[in-house]
Design a binder for these strands. Structure first.
Length: 425
RNA sequence: GGAGGAAUGUCCCGAGUGGCAAAGGGGGCGGACUGUAAAUCCGCUGCGAAAGCUUCGUAGGUUCGAGUCCUACUUCCUCCA
C-alpha cells in the first residue's frame, strides 16, 4: 500500500505541475507513477459528488476546479453523481449519521446540482470531453449476496477499522451504523466500475476522502490487476480557521436561485487578506505571475486583488455580465454610498406601508435580515439597523410610504454588509 | 437477557440545589477600531408591542411550584451473559 507520498517537486506532466503550483495537492498515492502516466498520454479521472443538497457549495469548488484543470491539461474528466451512494450516506468527516434522503429527493438534488458543472467543463463525446455518470446505474443493480461475494473478500474489517472515518466514530463513542460502514465499499466499487467501463485510473477528492479513495485504488488492483491512483486536496479553511463555503447566511451555494450572483460576488470580496493568494490560485484561471503580483499588493490595496478574485470567481460561474453587475452594485453601495437596482430586492405589498401598521422590525424580518421580530429589535437596539442610511434604534418605529425615497424604495441595512431594497408593489 | 450510565436553551459543548427563561464556553449576529480584512475590546443571542406564552428525549404522576422527585416508554453508551 502506498502511503501519502509527499509530491516529488518537479513534475513532468502539465496536469500535476499545474495542480501543484496552484495548491490543489494534499496527498497522492503514487505521485511519480501518476506523473509518468499523465506526461505520456491522456488520463481519465473522476470525482464523486453526493447529492445531499439541491446545490453544491463553495466547498466543492476546489474539486470542480481540479476537474477543470484536468481537462485543460488534456485529460478526460468524469463527474460522478452519487445517486447510489447518497442512498447510504458517507460517514467521512461526520460525527453523526445524516438523515437518509428519499430516492425522490436524491433525484431532484442531482437534477439541480448538474447545472453547476457546465460553466466549468466542456461536456461531449470527444476524447477529452467531460462526461457525467450516476453511480446508481450499477450500485442499485447488485443483489446483496452478489455484492458481498464479489467484493467482500477483498476488504478486511481489521483494516476498515483503521480508517479515520471509522476510527473517529469509535473513539468518540458515536454510533456508526452498519449501513454507513458499507459506504467505503460502495465508493471503492465505483472506482472499479469506472476503471472497467471508461478506463478511469485516477480518483480525486477532498482530504476526508482519502480512505475511500485508497480502497478504490486497491480494489482496482485486486480485481482488475490495473494501475490506479488517488489524489486528495487539502481541507479548505479560511486563515482564521472557519470552514470554507459556509457563512452566517448559510452555505455559499453555487446555484443562482439559492445564492444570487451579487451575494456570491460579495462572498469572495470579503475574503480575508491572508487567503487572497491561495484563493486566486484555487478558484481562478489567472496565470501565476499575475496572482503573485496581486497577492503582494500592500495594505488596503489588497482589496483590489479581492475584487479581481470576486470578478473571476463570479464570472466563471454566473458569467462576466453578472459579475460586473454585481461589482457595480457593490461598489456603488460601499464605496459611493449610492443605491443600485442590482442590490437584493424584496417586494412588499404597498398596502402594508399605507396602513401605517408596519414596524421596522417587522420589515427587517420580511426582508430576510432577521429571523424574528425580537431579533430585529435587538439588532436595532444594538445600533445595527439602518433605514435609508439612518440608524434606527427603536425597532417599533413605524414605517410608512413617507419613508420611501425618491426612487420609491426603502433601503434597509443590517450591519454594514447586508443591504436590501424594499420595493412596494 | 442482566447491571450501570446518559439525553439540557431545536447550531454545538456544557453546569444545574424543588422557585429557572435556566451558569459558563464555542459558534453566530451587531457595535467600536480599520480597508466591505484579520486581531482586539464591548453588547446581543427562545417567541411576543406588552400582559404573557413556550423550552431541558417522550408520555403520565407527586407537589402551591419540577430540568431537578416517582412511573412507563424511546434512543445511545459501558460492562456482564
Amino acid at each position: 500500500m502506498t502511503e501519502a507520498a509527499s509530491p516529488a517537486l518537479p513534475f513532468k506532466s502539465d496536469f500535476l505541475r499545474t495542480l501543484q503550483e496552484r495548491g490543489f495537492i494534499h496527498q497522492v498515492t503514487d505521485a511519480g507513477g501518476l506523473d509518468e502516466k499523465a506526461a505520456k498520454g491522456r488520463v481519465v479521472a473522476y470525482i464523486g459528488f453526493d447529492a445531499t443538497a439541491p446545490s453544491l457549495h463553495a466547498g466543492s469548488l476546489v474539486q470542480i476546479m481540479m476537474l477543470r484543470w484536468l481537462q485543460k491539461t488534456g485529460h478526460k474528466p468524469i463527474v460522478l453523481m452519487g445517486g447510489g451512494t447518497t442512498k447510504v450516506g458517507d460517514p467521512s468527516g461526520k460525527d453523526a449519521s445524516r438523515q437518509l434522503l428519499t430516492e425522490d429527493d436524491i433525484k431532484a438534488n442531482i437534477a439541480s446540482i448538474k447545472q453547476a458543472f457546465s460553466p466549468f467543463l466542456t461536456f461531449g463525446d470527444g476524447p477529452t470531453d467531460a462526461i457525467m455518470i450516476d453511480n446508481d446505474a450499477w450500485l442499485s443493480g447488485y443483489g446483496y449476496i452478489q455484492f458481498l461475494r464479489e467484493f467482500g473478500p477483498h476488504f478486511t474489517v481489521n483494516r476498515m477499522l483503521t480508517f479515520d472515518s471509522v476510527k473517529m466514530r469509535l473513539e468518540r463513542e458515536q454510533p456508526l451504523t452498519f449501513l454507513e460502514f458499507n459506504y467505503m465499499l460502495m465508493q471503492a466499487v465505483d472506482f472499479l466500475e469506472l476503471y472497467q467501463r471508461h478506463g478511469c485510473v485516477l480518483q480525486m477528492g477532498g482530504s476526508d476522502q482519502w480512505g475511500n479513495i485508497v480502497n478504490g485504488v486497491e480494489i482496482v488492483r485486486r480485481k482488475s490487476d490495473g494501475e490506479a491512483f488517488g489524489l486528495t486536496t487539502p481541507l479548505l479553511t479560511t486563515s482564521s480557521g472557519a470552514k470554507m463555503g459556509k457563512t452566517a447566511a448559510g452555505a455559499v451555494w453555487l446555484n443562482a436561485d439559492m445564492r444570487s450572483p451579487y451575494d456570491y460576488w460579495q462572498f469572495w470580496r470579503n475574503t480575508e487578506d491572508a487567503d487572497v493568494g491561495r484563493f486566486l490560485r484555487l478558484f481562478t484561471d489567472l496565470p501565476i505571475p499575475e496572482i503573485e503580483r496581486l497577492e503582494k499588493l500592500p495594505g488596503a490595496e489588497i482589496n483590489e486583488a479581492k475584487k479581481v478574485l470576486a470578478d473571476e470567481a463570479t464570472g466563471m460561474l454566473h458569467g462576466r455580465e453578472a459579475a460586473s453587475q454585481a461589482r457595480a452594485a457593490a461598489e456603488a453601495a460601499f464605496e459611493q454610498g449610492r443605491l443600485s437596482a442590482d442590490l437584493p430586492t424584496v417586494e412588499v405589498p404597498r398596502a402594508t406601508l399605507e396602513s401605517g401598521e408596519t414596524t421596522i422590525a417587522a420589515l427587517a424580518v420580511d426582508a430576510g435580515l432577521a429571523s424574528s421580530r425580537g431579533e430585529a429589535r435587538r439588532l436595532a437596539e444594538g445600533g445595527g439597523l439602518r433605514l435609508n442610511d439612518e440608524q434606527i434604534k427603536d425597532g417599533m418605529r413605524p414605517v410608512t410610504v413617507a419613508d420611501l425615497n425618491a426612487d420609491g424604495v426603502l433601503k434597509l441595512a443590517a450591519g454594514k454588509k447586508k443591504i436590501v431594497l424594499v420595493r412596494p408593489f
